[in-house]
Lab assay of single mutants.
Amino acid sequence: QGDIVVALYPYDGIHPDDLSFKKGEKMKVLEEHGEWWKAKSLLTKKEGFIPSNYVAKLN
């Protein structure tokens, strides 16, 4: 089961498979690959890669 993270900063995706998000948006982490994680937005239901240093895990 994936962790839920919250965006600390907004992110505008650079690549087509990036997931753009707004500050405060919550996402479910699907896979962790070093600095880039695959996640699904709980708001938009879209999936893509996010920079892990832009988010914090919720406990």
Rank of each mutant, 00 (worst) to 15 (best):
L42V: 06
V29R: 02
I4A: 03
M27V: 02
G34P: 05
K38R: 13
E32N: 12
S41W: 02
K22W: 05
L8C: 11
G34W: 04
E25H: 03
S41R: 02
L19N: 01
P51H: 05
K46A: 09
A39G: 05
G24S: 04
M27Q: 00
A7Q: 00
V55G: 02
W37T: 08
E25W: 04
K22V: 12
Y54D: 02
I14E: 09
A56T: 12
Y9K: 11
H15W: 11
Y11E: 01
P51G: 02
S41F: 01
A39E: 00
Y54T: 04
P51F: 04
Y9A: 08
H33W: 11
K28C: 13
K22I: 13
G48S: 00
V29S: 01
N59E: 13
Y11L: 03
S41I: 04
Y54P: 01
N59F: 11
L42I: 07
F21M: 04
S52H: 09
Y54K: 07
E32W: 11
A56P: 02
G13R: 07
N53H: 13
S20Q: 06
E47D: 06
I50P: 01
H33I: 10
P10F: 07
V6Y: 11
F49M: 14
P16K: 11
H15D: 08
D18Y: 13
E47N: 05
K28V: 15
K46T: 06
K22N: 08
L43R: 12
K22D: 08
G13M: 06
E32V: 15
Q1L: 14
K23E: 08
K23D: 04
V55P: 01
G2M: 11
P16L: 08
S41H: 09
L19R: 02
G24W: 07
V29Q: 02
I50N: 01
V5G: 02
P51A: 02
F49C: 12
G48V: 00
Y54C: 08
F21G: 00
L19Y: 03
D17A: 11
G24I: 00
E47Q: 10
M27D: 00
W37K: 13
K45C: 15
E47C: 12
E31I: 09
G2K: 09
H15A: 10
V55Y: 03
P51C: 07
K26W: 15
A7T: 03
W37C: 09
I14K: 12
P51T: 01
K28A: 10
F49K: 08
M27P: 00
V5N: 01
S52G: 07
K45R: 12
L42M: 09
V29Y: 03
L19I: 04
G2Y: 13
H15S: 10
D3T: 15
E35H: 15
F21Y: 01
Y9Q: 10
V55S: 01
K57T: 09
